[in-house]
């Protein structure tokens, strides 16, 4: 396998008595696209949120490019970690008081210390890449959900992250807007970006993923090539879940 980007060992997380993540182990290599599937409440989103410490794990270890960022109950250099890890949310979370361009520029200026002109040029370039060259000066409330989500992707990309995390990014979109967002993600995958994608889009997982993880009740139950996990699952729980999802 290529160089490890994210390495997770024995990750645990509970909310009170509810154990959401019980023992998560996964190693994600450079350029790999990993899709995470599983039923509601299986811990997929929580795992993703632990990867950039939006949730503090209760135990285990996380390494980013060989450097420990969480271990023995302690975090290290959170702000450094987060600027290297891009995250896109289900609910977009664009800054409503800023234009699309400002949304993409603000962290470049404040976190990456880029000059305003340089960061604006980069923002316009990235917004063009996600098909929004004519929307750079629009405010989020004037954009459709799909357009907002593409701005959010551009915003995360502007930090030049080493890995991008996607948390059910098409789940809040109207059906006809999903394709535009998935196309952007597909292009990103083709360009060699390392990606961890929590999704319900089975076709996307089948076509784009290098590896599919199936999670249930806080464990990774099964993982492997998309054709194997989605086409010929070996675990009973995976079969049952796919039966329910693909029967739609």
């Amino acid at each position: 396998m290529s160089e490890s980007i994210l390495k997770v060992e024995g990750l645990k997380k509970s909310y009170g008595k509810l154990d959401v993540l019980k023992d998560i182990n996964v190693d994600i290599g450079e350029g790999e696209v990993v899709c995470v599937i599983g039923p509601s409440g299986s811990g997929k989103s929580t795992m993703l949120r632990c990867l950039n410490m939006l949730e503090l794990p209760d135990g285990g270890r996380i390494e980013l490019q060989g450097n420990e960022i969480f271990g023995a109950g302690k975090t290290h250099d959170l702000d450094v970690l987060r600027r290297e890890v891009g995250m896109v949310f289900q609910s977009f979370n664009l800054f409503p008081h800023m234009s699309a361009k400002q949304n993409v520029s603000i962290a470049q200026v404040r976190v990456r210390d880029r000059k305003k002109k340089e960061s604006d040029e980069r923002s316009v370039e990235l917004l063009g890449k996600v098909g929004l060259e004519d929307k750079v000066d629009e405010y989020p409330d004037r954009l459709s959900g799909g357009q907002q989500q593409r701005v959010a992707i551009a915003r995360a990309l502007a930090m030049d992250p080493v890995v991008m995390l996607f948390d059910e990014v098409t789940s809040a979109l109207d059906p006809e807007l999903v394709k535009g967002v998935l196309d952007v993600m597909r292009e990103l995958a083709d360009s060699g970006m390392t990606m961890v994608v929590v999704t319900h889009e089975m076709n996307f997982a089948r076509e784009v993923a290098d590896r599919v993880l199936f999670m249930d009740q806080g464990y990774i139950v099964e993982q492997g090539k998309p054709d194997d996990v989605l086409g010929n699952p070996s675990e009973e729980r995976t079969k049952k879940f796919l039966g329910l999802v693909l029967a739609r």
């Binding site: 939006l54 450094v80 987060r82 995250m87 800054f95 603000i106 962290a107 976190v111 990456r112």
Partner: peptide
């Protein structure tokens, strides 16, 4: 909304920067 702070922090902003700019 809580997501505003989460989005800011996920971009690497500190708590203070997120408060001030977002």
């Amino acid at each position: 909304p809580r997501g505003q702070m989460e989005a800011s922090r996920s971009l690497g902003m500190s708590h203070g920067q997120a408060m001030r700019f977002v």
